[in-house]
């Protein structure tokens, strides 16, 4: 759906049109689930977080400024929901993605051992993200988990591209150190 159409639907929803809200959910749910999967590595969590994001959007639609991109606003709400989930997970490791039964049902692994290894690495990576500063986490998540171009991220965060690159470098160094430490002490 085009950005203009999304914004118009959002404006209609702000005026109380619940059907417009349903159409927005239908239009953006798929990319939101995919994005949440990158943050969690778990389809169940991805769906739950997407649901949580839409409820937040419903409750906070009055805060949305129709002059700005609705898609970007929803992605921001979603990113915050995903990072909040990770923060909770960093406190209680048991909520980290583990046995993703739904995921296995969706995409049966050709090589179960490699799949298990991939899931374990993703779990460790998300734990390692807990060692990053808030700004490092924001930059790393947008560039690597969401696959957004570095210059776009710099523009969205209101920082210079060189600053973003430096932040990203430090974030990667810290991640590598944390992951290697986890490898040494399983």
């Amino acid at each position: 759906m085009e950005e203009r159409e999304l914004t118009a639907l959002a404006a209609a929803f702000q005026r109380g049109d619940e059907d417009a809200f349903e159409r927005l959910v239908e239009a953006l749910t798929r990319p939101l689930i995919a994005m949440a999967y990158r943050y969690t590595g778990d389809w169940e969590w991805a769906r739950d977080l997407t649901q949580e994001t839409w409820v937040r959007v419903h409750d906070r639609i009055r805060r949305y400024d129709p002059v700005r991109s609705f898609r970007a606003w929803v992605y921001t709400v979603h990113r915050n929901a995903c990072l909040s989930h990770l923060r909770r997970a960093w406190v209680r490791y048991e909520t980290m993605p583990g046995d993703d039964a739904l995921g296995r049902a969706i995409e049966p692994a050709a090589d179960p051992l490699a799949d298990l290894e991939r899931r374990e690495f993703h779990r460790r990576l998300l734990i390692a993200m807990g060692t990053l500063s808030e700004s490092q986490r924001q930059v790393f998540a947008r560039v690597y988990l969401e696959g957004v171009d570095q210059k776009e991220v710099a523009q969205a965060l209101g920082i210079k591209h060189t600053t973003l690159r430096a932040t990203l470098h430090f974030a990667r160094k810290r991640l590598a150190a944390a992951l290697r430490e986890m490898e040494e002490t399983p």
Partner: peptide
């Protein structure tokens, strides 16, 4: 999965 989100929301 996509279709299941709206009823839940």
């Amino acid at each position: 999965m996509v279709a299941s989100v709206w009823p839940r929301v």
